[in-house]
Structures are given as structure tokens and as C-alpha cells.
Simulated scan of single mutants.
Amino acid sequence: MLDSDQRRLLGEFVRAHRERMQPAAAGRRRTSVLRREELAARAGISVTWCTWIEQGRPVQASPEALGRIAQALSLSRAERAYLFELAGRLDPEGPAGSSAYAPPALIAAVKAIKPPAYGLDRLWNACCWNDAAARLFHGWLDGDCQRNLLRYVFLEHSARVLIPAWKDRARRLLAEFRADFAHTFRDAQVKTFVETLRRESPFFAEAWDEQAVQIREGGLRTFNHSRGGLLSFTQHTFAPSERPDYKLVMLTPAES
């Protein structure tokens, strides 16, 4: 249940956006704003429910009803995300369902970075990377290999050679992915991806069932590179402001 501040903010937001809407027949009436009855009709909810939301009463709309309200109010992407955040709901048509292309800002940042850097989408597919990353991650970002980070780590033999303490690192990586999974578990592609990896990798299935969750903190990362020997980096992870479901990962050489 939402707390009083959330309910108040949600109600104020819905009311303000309703009152800025122009009704279809504005020229033949006293008020030039959309009435609650009209918003309720457009969104397919009852007038009482609409009133209670605006008044900040202890009610909680379903994601489907919120989606209809967002459409009825012609909310922008940012406004819709704000509506769902205030309502404490996951948007079924949120970033996970939007464009599969990497944001231009992410591509530009990866290209501008000299140390190894790459971008990940919501499934942790590599969507862009620089030459330094391709040289470091032989078997993942070079040639025609598997581009998904989790599939690479759990299925490719070269990952076990490149990554010291492979099982521990793999478990940590999966725990970080699970933190993202809380925002994407309704996405059919994400569900299929997880179930496929469970079938293909018994170790993935075992680690997944452990239910470990960890934020992507970064820190020291070492690699047994076939040409460079033992290499150490400090990992940093960022999210583009326009597409927070994507990640920018940068590996700066660790100080010896």
C-alpha cells in the first residue's frame, strides 16, 4: 500500500495533467478542462475510482489501469514513468518494451573512452564496445562470437580461462543481473532468456535458484589474458539518463 505522501503526489499529478487537457467540445461549455467523468471514460475506470486517486485516498490502481490513464492524459515517456513510480507499479510497456537500439549517448561515450568499455541492454547483450574491450574479451566481443554477457560467462570455455575464480565471478554476475530482473520479470523476452539459460547451463540453474541479489558495485577485476598475462582493472558502471535500462561499463587500469 502506498504511503500518504505517495498518494498525495500521485493525486496531484493526475489532477494537474487532467486539468491541462482540452476536452473535445471545449467551445460549447463553461469549463475548458477535462472533467473527471471524461478522464474516467477515456481510461475505462469508474468516476469514483478516478476521484479517489486524485484525492489521495488509499487505493491502488493496476498497471493496466495506470497505462490507460497515461494514454488518456497523453503523458510523455518521462511523465508516464513518473506516474508508475509514484503508484509503486512496474510499467508493462516501460523501457524493456522499447527500442532495442543502443542510445546514441551510450555509443558516443563508449567510442570516446580509451580503456575497455562496452554497453549492455536489458538482457545484458553487448550493444556497443570499443577496440580495447574487443582485445580484452576474446571469445565475447571479437569475431562472430556470442554477444550476451551471461551466455558468454556461463557457456563459453574461453570465459573460464579468462576469468580467475570463474565460479565466484559468475555467481556475482548473476546476482547483479537479478537486481535488474526485478524491473524486467514481466518481459516475455527476459523470461525466455532466463529459462533457456537454465536449460543450457546446470550451473546457471543452480546459481539462479540461490536467489542471490547484488547491486553492480564495480571494483577490482582481474583477467588471465592469453597475450597480456594477468591484467587488473577497476570496473565502473553507469546508466544513460535517457535509457536507464542500458548500462555503460568501463574498465580503467588498476593502480599497481
Rank of each mutant, 00 (worst) to 15 (best):
R7M: 06
L220A: 03
M21H: 07
T48S: 05
I107T: 14
P58I: 02
L197M: 15
E176G: 01
R227K: 14
I107C: 10
W52Q: 02
W208S: 00
R221E: 11
A212R: 14
H157Q: 15
R169N: 13
A72H: 07
S74Y: 05
K247S: 12
A126W: 13
Y82V: 00
P240A: 04
I163L: 11
T237M: 14
Q146D: 15
D180I: 09
V14K: 07
R221S: 08
P240Q: 04
L73I: 05
E217A: 12
F238D: 05
A61C: 00
G229M: 07
G228Y: 14
G97L: 10
L230P: 01
G88S: 06
A179L: 13
L75I: 12
V213M: 09
R160N: 08
F204I: 05
F84S: 09
S99M: 07
G143A: 14
C50D: 01
L39G: 01
A70D: 08
T48A: 01
P244F: 01
G88K: 08
F193G: 07
N148A: 10
R7D: 08
Y118D: 06
I69E: 03
D3Q: 01
Q146F: 06
A16D: 05
A105Q: 10
S158F: 03
Q55A: 02
L123Y: 05
P23R: 00
G11W: 01
Q214G: 03
R199C: 14
L10K: 00
D180H: 07
I113W: 13
A87Q: 05
A132N: 10
R160I: 11
E19Q: 12
V59N: 04
P104K: 00
A159M: 10
D3V: 00
F177L: 10
G94S: 04
M250P: 00
F13V: 02
T48R: 12
L162H: 07
F193A: 13
R151Y: 01
P116W: 05
R42K: 03
A25I: 13
I53L: 11
D121N: 15
R135I: 15
L123M: 09
V59P: 06
A65I: 13
S256K: 09
A25M: 08
R8N: 06
R36V: 09
N224G: 06
L162T: 09
A117D: 02
R20P: 02
G219L: 11
R18L: 07
S226T: 12
H236F: 14
L248Y: 01
K191P: 06
D142A: 11
S76Y: 01
A239K: 11
R35A: 09
S232M: 15
A65K: 08
D142P: 11
Q189N: 15
A105C: 08
F203P: 02
A239S: 12
V213D: 09
V110C: 03
M21N: 01
K111M: 08
W52N: 00
E37S: 08
L197E: 03
A26V: 11
N125F: 04
R147E: 11
R169M: 10
L123F: 05
R89N: 00
W140C: 09
L2K: 00
G139C: 13
N148L: 12
E217I: 06
R20A: 04
H17E: 04
A159E: 11
P253S: 03
S32H: 10
G119E: 04
A70H: 07
S158E: 12
A105V: 14
A102V: 09
V110R: 02
